[in-house]
């Protein structure tokens, strides 16, 4: 009975966390699925968003403004990666690793060399909302605010990726070669995608920091893997079909399910330090499913002589 009760409490928390982190997952979806770009910047930009908002709120800046600043900070991180990749022609993953590493130092500068920025005695956006809705549990408050943000963000993303520019970004991820031949600067499209993605990641970090009442320079570690795991879980559960809005919604569902799964394994006695291993395993398995299928279900054929590439 006790187990069930603590599980239920953990579930509530997990769902709220899942929604707050899903904003990051939406960002990862944009780079990983739309642009086909594995962007490790997010490990840095998530913490950047968290630190920026914690610093501002602790200095009595309005929590809402702090979120906005975190969004812009995240966007700037994405721009740097985009610049390194497209203008300086550094391979995508490497460009994003460079930004991520640089952000460790930068985040410590922003936090004034404190590895942890507590939010004590100041009110976050959750506290503000909670004082309006008296008597509502803190998990529910977190959930409501998270959902409000998610609904607005999904609407904006749905609109944006339906516009001429958004379509060009989607097409760039699909077939860069064609898009250039049709007169679009694919470098610009990649940069816009990275800026948008990391803006969301920074915002998500900011919301998480305000929700947990502290920002931490290490809070972004593993973000990319959590994001990928959530995207993949969402796709497995909800399928690949239907409209873009549906796909975005399934990303959010994926993020929630991920948190719930984590809560369950923690209740079952796993240490929280094991979670990164577990998440990495999950992603490795999910990403290898197509290869496994191919290897297991196709008969071994004698090697065919490949035709020469000729242009």
């Amino acid at each position: 009975m006790e187990f069930i009760q603590s599980l239920l409490a953990a579930m509530q928390d997990a769902v709220a966390q899942g929604v707050l982190w899903s904003i990051m997952t939406l960002g990862v979806y944009i780079t990983f699925r739309v642009l086909d770009f594995a962007d490790l910047t997010v490990d840095g930009s998530f913490a950047t968003g968290g630190i920026i908002s914690a610093m501002l709120v602790s200095h009595s800046v309005s929590p809402m403004l702090a979120l906005l600043a975190a969004l812009l900070g995240g966007m700037l991180c994405g721009f740097v990666t985009g610049f390194l990749h497209t203008k300086l022609e550094i391979p995508g993953i490497l460009a994003s690793i460079l930004t991520m590493i640089a952000l460790y130092s930068i985040n410590l500068r922003i936090s004034n060399f404190a590895s942890n920025v507590p939010l004590l005695g100041v009110s976050t956006i959750f506290d503000q909302f909670g004082s309006v809705l008296k008597g509502v549990g803190s998990n529910v408050i977190s959930l409501i605010i998270g959902l409000l943000f998610v609904v607005v963000i999904i609407s904006v993303l749905y609109w944006f990726f339906g516009t001429e520019m958004g379509s060009s970004i989607r097409a760039t991820g699909d077939n860069e070669y064609m898009v250039r031949a049709l007169g679009v600067n694919t470098n610009t499209m990649k940069i816009i995608g990275l800026v948008l993605s990391n803006g969301l990641v920074g915002l998500s970090g900011a919301l998480v920091a305000q929700n947990q009442h502290f920002g931490d320079v290490g809070m972004g570690t593993g973000t990319i893997v959590i994001g990928l795991a959530s995207v993949i879980i969402g796709e497995v559960l909800m399928g690949h079909r239907f409209s873009f809005a549906y796909k975005l919604a399934s990303v959010v569902v994926g993020s929630i399910i991920y948190r719930v799964m984590i809560a369950v394994v923690l209740q079952l006695g796993l240490k929280s330090s094991d979670l990164k291993l577990l998440t990495a395993l999950l992603v490795a398995i999910a990403l290898s499913i197509p290869v496994m299928k191919r290897k297991l279900f196709t008969k071994v054929k004698p090697a065919e002589s490949e035709e020469e590439p000729n242009d």
Binding site: T163, E164, S168, D174, G183
Partner: peptide
């Protein structure tokens, strides 16, 4: 090489219809 596989026939044509034009925030 000439088409985007994950996009609709109409979306591909719309991309081509705007060849050489600036692409902004109008509907795709």
């Amino acid at each position: 090489r000439g088409t985007a596989a994950d996009m609709g026939i109409d979306e591909n044509l719309a991309m081509a219809y705007r060849r050489g034009k600036s692409r902004g925030f109008r509907w795709g």
